[in-house]
């Protein structure tokens, strides 16, 4: 077997696992947009905050899993507070207003992270450090693990949305906010909780990404753009569209790395966005809130 083929397979595996981690960010983003028309520019900072919270608890307890739980929980609560204090009063207003407000919040959070933790990159040890052999190359087990975990979380979200009362409230509110109110659904609560869930998913993603990339204050900015591209390519408000687009973008960038430097690989996802917008301005998959 020739070397290029082996490279291709390994890079594709890397791409799929990266894509699934990003899918956590993107699906939260798309869920929040679908239900309250809020484009959360601060979503990258929630991703970054999750990585930091996880790192703090990981260094304190030495347990990868406690770090994961702490990251999700802390940022879930933070998301609730952020939605209630800043965004709730903006729901129903011009979407541009919410873009500006969340942009302001992202600046504050990012700078606050530099202030609190400094600009240096922090390391989080992976839960599993083993490798499996793929051809003559070593492929980290950790990547398989996070890919599975991400899929499980997205599957869990889907189950939550389709079983039980709260999931029904979420779906009803996404389809018709006023009518949901008229059926006695506590729409403000639904909005806050959905924002919290989206925040927690971003935090989980940030923490799972940490052993691969390290933790630093700009990790949010660096990844949010990709998350936006994924959400637009996948169709705003479409959960499975976002997951597919995430895997696609992840693979595209991983394969690009074979030929160009990692810094330039991101241009390929930009190109994917531009082509998508040319062909179908509302994304490849039609947004169907289900």
């Amino acid at each position: 077997m020739n070397e290029l083929f082996q490279d291709l397979v390994v890079q594709m595996l890397i791409g799929i696992s990266t894509g699934l981690i990003l899918a956590l960010v993107a699906s939260g983003l798309t869920l929040i947009f679908g239900i309250m028309d809020v484009v959360n520019f601060a979503h990258g900072e929630l991703f970054m905050l999750g990585a930091y919270m996880g790192w703090v608890f990981f260094t304190m307890t030495g347990s990868f899993w406690l770090g994961l739980a702490a990251a999700a929980l802390c940022v879930f609560v933070f998301g609730l507070i952020m939605q209630r204090s800043a965004l709730r009063s903006l729901i129903g207003s011009d979407p541009l207003t919410t873009i500006l407000a969340t942009f302001g919040i992202s600046l504050v959070l990012q700078t606050a992270a530099i202030w609190i933790w400094g600009p240096t990159v922090r390391r989080v040890g992976a839960a599993f450090t083993g490798h499996v052999a793929v051809f003559h190359l070593q492929f980290p087990v950790y990547r398989f693990l996070v890919a599975m975990l991400s899929l499980a979380i997205i599957g869990g979200l889907w189950l939550f949305m389709h079983r039980g009362r709260f999931g029904l409230w979420i779906r009803a509110t996404t389809q018709d906010r006023q009518m949901a109110l008229a059926m006695g659904i506590p729409v403000p609560l639904v909005h806050t909780v959905v924002f919290g869930i989206g925040a927690a998913m971003a935090a989980t993603s940030g923490y799972l990404y940490a052993p691969i990339l390290g933790v630093d204050p700009t990790m949010g900015v660096n990844n949010i753009l990709r998350a936006f591209i994924i959400v637009v390519v996948g169709g705003m408000g479409n959960l499975w569209g976002s997951v597919l687009a995430a895997v696609f973008i992840g693979m595209l960038e991983a394969l690009a790395v074979i030929w160009v430097s990692p810094a330039l690989a991101v241009i390929f996802s930009f190109a994917a966005l531009i082509v998508t917008l040319l062909v179908r301005p509302t994304g490849l998959f039609v947004a169907v809130p289900r």
């Binding site: 484009v39 873009i99 753009l225 591209i229 930009f270």
Partner: peptide, 8 residues
């Protein structure tokens, strides 16, 4: 979409 695309 315009905001995100100009950013990109």
């Amino acid at each position: 979409y315009f905001s995100i695309t100009t950013l990109v």
